[in-house]
């Protein structure tokens, strides 16, 4: 799955390299900047992965946590070992968290690497007009990856809860991915504006502040609070469900 994620920036870079100049303003944001500075491959890769590809992979990983073990039948043997239900849930969620951290990082760093290999690398112009050195730009890239990692925490907690509801991992995965799409659709409807700040996908693309000088932390903080709320609520639901669940798989 990480290989598939790494393939995205590689595809972008190769496609841009092989095609003639992209007219500015078409395609994903920053796409036209890639030819001038390879580091933008990382940003573009993350940007195009946020709506679907990242939630998809997080949904697969988080949905598989408990339901995957139940589907294999190994859940009963882990619990009889006895692994302890709370401990098992925590270990499983920790695994999903690690994936949330690693996934955007893989896109960012693969992107930066392939971009540096295929395109010139130089000072990067930020959205505020300031320019920064390539080394600092890579740092910003990692910062954006961290922002996205935080963004995915809520979804991974939802996936963990879904995973405790069923013995069919595909069901939990699909439900999680569908919820991420629904959340984004709701976020796009202006009639539901009152709901938007409460949707876990609301701040997903809100990392532009990290591309300014000085860096703004407002949306990072709002996002972190929102995701923490989702983790608390769905973590508690997953806990209460799993601790009392009859393991019949």
């Amino acid at each position: 799955m990480l290989a598939a994620l790494a393939a995205i920036p590689i595809l972008i870079a190769v496609a841009v390299r092989l095609s003639s100049a992209v007219p500015p303003g078409r395609g994903p944001a920053f796409l036209d900047r890639i030819t001038q500075n390879g580091l933008f491959v990382g940003v573009t890769g993350m940007l195009v992965s946020i709506p679907l590809f990242l939630p998809l992979t997080v949904g697969v990983v988080a949905g598989d946590t408990v339901a995957g073990e139940a589907g294999l039948g190994t859940l009963r043997y882990l619990l009889v070992a006895p692994a302890g239900r709370v401990k098992l849930l925590l270990v499983k969620y920790a695994g999903a968290l690690v994936f949330c951290i690693v996934a955007p990082l893989v896109i960012a760093l693969t992107g930066a690497a392939i971009g540096a290999a295929l395109f010139p690398v130089g000072r990067v112009t930020l959205l505020s007009g300031d320019t920064i050195a390539p080394a600092e730009a890579v740092l910003r890239l990692i910062l954006i990856a961290a922002y996205i990692a935080v963004s995915l925490l809520g979804l991974s907690a939802i996936g963990l809860f879904m995973s405790t509801l069923t013995d069919v991992p595909v069901g939990a995965m699909a439900a999680t991915v569908v919820l991420s799409v629904v959340s984004q659709v709701l976020d796009a409807l202006p009639q539901l504006e009152w709901l938007h700040p409460w949707l876990f996908s609301h701040y997903w693309l809100g990392f532009s502040e990290l591309l300014r000088q000085p860096i703004g932390w407002d949306s990072f903080a709002s996002n972190a609070w929102l995701q923490a709320g989702y983790v608390a609520v769905f973590g508690a639901l997953a806990y209460s469900r799993f601790v009392t669940k009859d393991i019949l798989s």
Binding site: L72, G73, T74, R76, Y77, V80, A81, P82
Partner: peptide, 16 residues
Amino acid sequence: VLPRVGALVEGPAFYP
């Protein structure tokens, strides 16, 4: 209790 109990429940199950 369970560390002192060995069990085979409803068929074996493993990571293939």
